[in-house]
Design a protein around this nucleic acid. Structure first.
Lengths: 205, 205
DNA sequence: GTCAAACTGGACTAGATAGTCCAGTCGTAA
DNA sequence: TTACGACTGGACTATCTAGTCCAGTTTGAC
């Protein structure tokens, strides 16, 4: 079974391997990335890899954990600070700009989920858990906005959070497939308009 | 280069191979499926495969073409017949039921796009083209509804078509990852509500 | 310094993988 | 029936793959 690194040197080695694996897996997928490629990119050896990971699936799960951590660290403060539709708009614009700047690479977690959810139960569960963390932040924000009177009683934060996430994932996938950032913009603009239509002061059914 | 089959026997052989490949690729991904597995499932031999396909990437593109054809054949009439929000609701309910009945397998084209868009330019282009065909049907329906007075002047059919597709793809991915059909329902319910908010008779900004 | 445990280099294996090759069989048009 | 090209069986190769093994080096607590 995998061994946790106990020294600084060990931690750095493990880190280098996960770094390299995360990058290659994002480009080529998990099945499309070989351990030899990872080790060459990391400048590490087989024995190092198998010292820290029990097998390839274990390494892939470490990549998932890494990506979940990055995403939460990076977007957590952003999403956690949302209190109004204007904040949502700024967050969406940031997502759109980031996607365009990076050349529409898709979502690293979404790509892994798409590949692994059907054939690696442990990975699927880890990814679902990561999705939950992210979506929880959004749901909390929407609940705050509802409690604060920005959204009216028709707004169901849990469902809206899921639909925001679905639009984001779908928009990222379309942008990646078309190599065109417009599709993410279209997707997020539509959810934003929908949220606006649920504004407290807006006329409603 | 690949050879088109010229006899009935040849067509059946090629068909068997693409059938088997489409099924295995949907389960395990393109990189996760070996040619030997495809051939065993198809009851065919290597020479048959390389008689009809120039290499593995060529076979994968045939799988994409097959899936695009299936999708358009199956959903084309459904989407083409849409003239009202009620028709949209029925179509969404059909998508939701279908996804649940099949055990939330995700979208075969979306899964391939996620895996291949970043590393196989020919496959990416084929998938974008397939997406375009599908989205075109939706955009046409929305345009008919706008022309018919069901949707008001705020509705932009092209952008709405993209957002419907994004929500569908994202919803299918979430359902697959969580193994829970509710997420697709949440995603499509939100787009449906948004379309309702663009109804001609609805109050609007 | 010393010593045990953590860590590492890299050779090694068994099996899988994409792709090649050719001799032989089948389909069909004349 | 014949003849030619489409089609097929299956052995074969070179390379890649995940995973093993062990001797040697580094680290950190004492």
């Amino acid at each position: 079974m995998a061994q946790e690194p106990l020294t600084g040197r060990g931690r750095r080695s493990r880190e280098r391997i996960v770094d390299a694996a995360a990058e290659l897996v994002a480009e080529r997928g998990a099945a499309g990335t070989s351990l030899d490629q990872v080790l060459e990119a990391a400048g590490a050896s087989k024995s190092q890899l198998y010292h820290y990971f029990s097998d390839k699936a274990d390494l892939v799960r470490a990549v998932i954990a890494r990506r979940v951590g990055e995403t939460v660290d990076c977007q957590g403060p952003l999403i956690g600070g949302i209190d109004s539709l204007d904040d949502i708009r700024r967050w969406f614009d940031w997502l759109i700009a980031e996607n365009e700047d990076r050349g529409c690479p898709g979502c690293p977690l979404g790509t892994l989920a798409s590949e692994l959810a059907g054939c690696d139960e442990a990975a699927r569960a880890d990814l679902a858990c990561g999705f939950d963390t992210w979506m929880g932040l959004v749901v909390d924000s929407l609940e705050r906005m509802k409690a604060g009177g920005e959204l009216d009683e028709r707004a169901d934060p849990r469902r809206l959070g899921a639909s925001v996430f679905a639009s984001l994932q779908g928009g990222l996938l379309l942008s990646k497939t078309y190599q065109d950032p417009q599709y993410l913009r279209d997707a997020l603009d539509a959810v934003y308009d929908h949220l606006v239509s649920l504004r407290r002061s807006a006329a409603g059914g």
